[in-house]
Each structure stands twice: as C-alpha cells, then as structure tokens.
C-alpha cells in the first residue's frame, strides 16, 4: 500500500464513530460504578505494524496489561486495549475502590479490567456496526499481560502477512483522575479495504 492508509476525511469519520462508542461505554461505566466516567479519543492513526510497534514501545516501554477481543464481520481483526501496569492498577483502584490496597494486581483486578475493557470495545464495535449499518460480531475478551513487544508480536503471528493497525489513544476521566489507555484494531489489509469501503458508502449516504 502506498500513500496514507486512510484519508484524512475517513480518519475523522472513524474518530467521530469511536467517540460516539466511547460515549456509550462511558455511560455504561458511569451507571455501573455510580460515578461520572468520561471517555474520549483525542487521536486516531492508521499505521503499519512496525510503525505501531515503534510507537507503542515509545509510549510505554515495559510490562502492560491488555485485553484482546476478536471482531468479525464485513471487516475483521483483533482489537487490543492496553494500559501500562501502573495506569491499569490506578484505573481499577478507582473503579473498584478499596479492593487493591497495594500495588499488586491480582485475578480480581484482572477480571474487572477485562470487563471494563470489554464494555469499551463492545460499545465501539456496536457503534461502528450501527452507524455503518453492517454486521460486526465480537468474541469473548481475553486478558494478556507482558511486554508490549511480546504482546504485539503474538498478534502479528495470528494475523495476516502485512497487518495494519488502527491506533486510538483513549483517555479515562474519572472525578479526580485522568488515566491513559491505548486502543488498537489490528486488521489485515483486506479488512482495512473493506472498512474503507464501508466508510465510502457511509460518506456517500451522508453526502446525499
């Protein structure tokens, strides 16, 4: 593929869609924890796999906690939402409360992280499917921990030859805390093409 993977116009559209999804996720989370949660997607990038790897390594070098969910439909791939270990601990501490009194991140915390991430990803998938009016199913969330490079390498092994990465940085705003997370949709180039097609279709509808 030469030139940008996604035109600026489509990138904006996708950003908008994800923001809507995040808004829904935030609403669900707010209800759940009985506290205001705001989620936003300040930026979205489409990257080649190696570029994404570089970017992530720069953003957070070291061990991470990630939740992976497969999605399948007109376009398919793996969505990964990941956090540095300290920000995931902080996030869960804020959402769950007193449970994790120390730095340790146990199974209960992992489960909570899995559920929160699942809500976010499902909201995004749901929004994409609804707005683009296409079918998009998702599998069950799986927790992955380890070094960012190792996590993404495993993803690469699972996907096609030259996967592309839609990368969104995401921000949780809790009443007195802002926590960063990263959402990546890793898709084969064919899937990306299908996504672009869907976006074109959506835009033409919108243009009319």
């Amino acid at each position: 593929m030469s030139g940008p993977v996604l035109s600026e116009e489509y990138r904006d559209t996708l950003s908008e869609l994800f923001n809507i999804g995040m808004g829904r996720a935030a609403q669900s989370l707010s209800e759940m924890v009985d506290e205001e949660v705001i989620l936003s997607v300040p930026s979205l990038q489409a990257l080649r796999y190696v570029e994404a790897l570089d970017l992530f390594t720069n953003v957070s070098n070291g061990p991470i906690n990630a939740v992976e969910q497969h999605f399948d439909g007109r376009f398919s791939g793996n969505a990964i939402i990941f956090y540095t270990q300290s920000s995931s601990a902080e996030l869960i501490r804020h959402i769950v409360g007193d449970l994790a009194a120390n730095e340790s991140f146990g199974e209960m915390e992992e489960e909570a992280l899995k559920e929160v991430s699942n809500i976010i990803l499902n909201a995004c998938f749901g929004c994409l499917a609804e707005v683009l009016d296409c079918e998009l199913k998702s599998g069950v969330p799986v927790i992955i921990t380890g070094d960012i490079g190792a996590v993404l390498k495993k993803q690469r092994g699972n996907s096609s030859v030259d996967p592309l990465v839609l990368s969104l940085s995401m921000q949780f705003s809790l009443p007195n805390k802002a926590i960063e997370g990263q959402v990546s949709l890793i898709m084969a180039s064919e899937s990306i093409r299908n996504l672009v097609k869907e976006l074109e279709r959506f835009s033409s509808l919108y243009a009319m």
Partner: peptide, 26 residues
C-alpha cells in the same frame, strides 16, 4: 442491575457482541 444485564444480552442477541461480566464489578 437488571438494565445492565438486559442491555448486555440484547447486545449479544441483536449485534452479535460477546461480553464478560466480572465478579469484581458484579
């Protein structure tokens, strides 16, 4: 939280999305 569960099931039935409900949060 019946609303939450109803929505989650609906998501599965209507949109084909899988969900996880943790013992920690529920």
């Amino acid at each position: 939280q019946p609303q939450f569960l109803r929505r989650t099931i609906k998501q599965a039935l209507e949109s084909g999305l899988s969900s996880f409900i943790s013992s920690t949060l529920h």
